[in-house]
Simulated scan of single mutants.
Amino acid sequence: MRTVNIHEAKTHLSRLVEQAANGEPFVIARAGKPLVRVVAIDAPEASAMRRRGFLAGEIDVPADFDTMGSAEIEALFGGSA
């Protein structure tokens, strides 16, 4: 997340607000100390965002996953199994 100082925020407020509305939140700081975070009103809460890869290494997918049960599925649909 980008951090800008108060002077820069005042100077470029329109552009910064537009970027935040488009999903690029930013932090306004005074003397390097973060004061406020600016995010779009409809931005999802951090806890509501889905994390990708959070089960990496936890699940084993069989090598024949793409063909598992194909004979049974063909039989169910009138195939020649």
Rank of each mutant, 00 (worst) to 15 (best):
M1R: 07
M1W: 00
T3E: 12
V4I: 06
V4Y: 02
V4Q: 00
V4D: 00
N5E: 15
I6M: 09
E8Q: 14
E8A: 15
K10S: 14
K10F: 15
T11D: 11
H12P: 02
H12V: 04
L13S: 12
L13H: 09
L13E: 10
S14L: 12
S14D: 15
S14G: 09
R15G: 12
R15E: 15
L16T: 03
V17G: 02
V17Q: 06
E18K: 11
E18T: 14
Q19A: 15
Q19G: 13
A20I: 05
A20K: 06
A21P: 00
N22R: 15
N22S: 14
N22A: 15
N22Y: 11
N22L: 15
G23Y: 11
G23T: 10
G23N: 11
G23H: 07
E24C: 13
E24D: 14
E24I: 12
E24M: 14
P25G: 08
P25L: 07
F26S: 03
V27D: 02
I28V: 15
I28Q: 06
I28D: 07
I28C: 06
I28M: 12
A29S: 05
A29G: 02
A29I: 00
A29V: 01
A29R: 02
A29K: 01
A31E: 12
A31T: 04
G32C: 06
K33W: 04
K33D: 07
K33M: 05
K33G: 01
P34H: 03
L35R: 04
R37Y: 00
V38P: 01
V38Y: 00
V38I: 13
V38S: 00
V39P: 00
V39C: 01
A40G: 13
A40D: 12
I41F: 02
I41M: 04
I41Y: 05
I41G: 03
D42S: 09
D42Q: 09
D42L: 05
A43W: 05
A43K: 08
A43S: 13
P44G: 06
E45V: 03
E45R: 10
E45L: 12
E45F: 10
A46Q: 10
S47E: 10
A48P: 01
A48V: 02
A48T: 01
M49Q: 15
M49E: 15
R50P: 13
R52N: 14
G53S: 06
F54D: 14
L55Q: 08
L55E: 09
L55K: 05
A56C: 08
A56H: 11
G57Q: 05
E58V: 06
E58Y: 11
D60H: 14
D60G: 11
V61G: 03
V61P: 01
P62I: 02
P62Q: 08
P62L: 05
A63C: 00
D64Q: 04
D66R: 13
D66T: 08
G69H: 10
S70K: 10
S70A: 10
S70F: 09
S70T: 10
S70H: 10
A71G: 01
E72A: 12
E72I: 06
E72T: 04
E72W: 04
I73V: 12
I73P: 00
I73K: 03
E74A: 13
A75P: 01
A75M: 05
A75I: 08
L76D: 05
L76F: 12
L76C: 01
L76Q: 06
L76T: 03
F77A: 07
F77D: 05
F77G: 09
G78D: 07
G79V: 00
A81K: 08
